[in-house]
């Protein structure tokens, strides 16, 4: 799945530490077509970053780069990804990277599991610039998208609202979740741009 207009194969950033040859070999394994391979690379990279985040890792982007680096080195040694399961190899290497990180950080994890954590502080104490940017970005959405995302977020204990909204649209609740989330991603990118901070899609 790619969003229209969000990829240019000539500008796919190469992870640091990965040689050009290794990177090209990696792209070739993802797809024979260079453009599609670049798209898959970016999608998979984003997914791995999120998986490392969800696993609670501190430097998800660095760990993702490490994963791609290892896969590319293996490809340079002659290993070929099975066409039936090209992504399983990425997953396997990512798990190895994760386990190594966890072993190193095991003492830190025990401290983390002590509990009693207060709610995290907001991104910035004064949220009004964020709110202002969000309002501008909402105004930039199509009416249906704006209505959808705001109705989805309305009200306390809003599970019932969401179920009613899904029934109104004639779709399942999970399909509604995905639809709303795609609008949220647009808003997130727009707000980051408005605030002048890098979008989550920009690689370092």
């Amino acid at each position: 799945m790619t969003r229209p207009g969000d990829h240019d194969a000539t500008r796919t950033p190469r992870p640091q530490g990965l040689t050009r040859e290794g990177f090209e070999a990696l792209l070739t394994q993802l797809d024979p077509d260079r453009e599609r391979a670049g798209q898959r690379y970016e999608i998979n990279r984003r997914k791995l970053v999120r998986l490392f985040e969800w696993r609670g890792c501190d430097s998800p982007e660095n760990l993702t780069d490490e994963t791609f680096d290892r896969v590319a080195r293996k490809l340079a040694e002659g290993i070929e990804l099975r066409s039936a399961d090209p992504y399983g190899y990425f997953c396997g290497v990512a798990h190895l990277v994760y386990k190594e990180v966890m072993r190193r950080a095991s003492r830190e994890r025990r401290a983390l599991e002590g509990g009693g954590w207060p709610p995290p502080e907001c991104l910035s104490e004064d949220e009004s610039p964020y709110l202002e940017c969000l309002r501008q970005c909402l105004d930039g959405l199509a009416h249906e998208e704006r209505d959808l995302v705001l109705r989805y977020h309305q009200g306390e204990n809003n599970v019932r609202n969401r179920q009613a909204l899904a029934r109104e649209l004639g779709i399942q609740l999970n399909a509604l979740r995905i639809r709303v989330h795609r609008v949220r991603r647009k808003l997130e990118d727009c707000v980051h741009g408005c605030l002048g901070s890098p979008s989550r899609e920009t690689f370092s």
Binding site: P120, C122, L134, L187
Partner: peptide, 24 residues
């Protein structure tokens, strides 16, 4: 805490708070 404490998580929390506020 882990979900909302990373830089990405804090940004998502800020978006959620703002969306809740505008929607309400």
């Amino acid at each position: 805490h882990r979900l909302v404490s990373s830089p990405g998580g804090r940004a998502r929390l800020a978006l959620a708070r703002s969306l809740n506020s505008v929607a309400d």
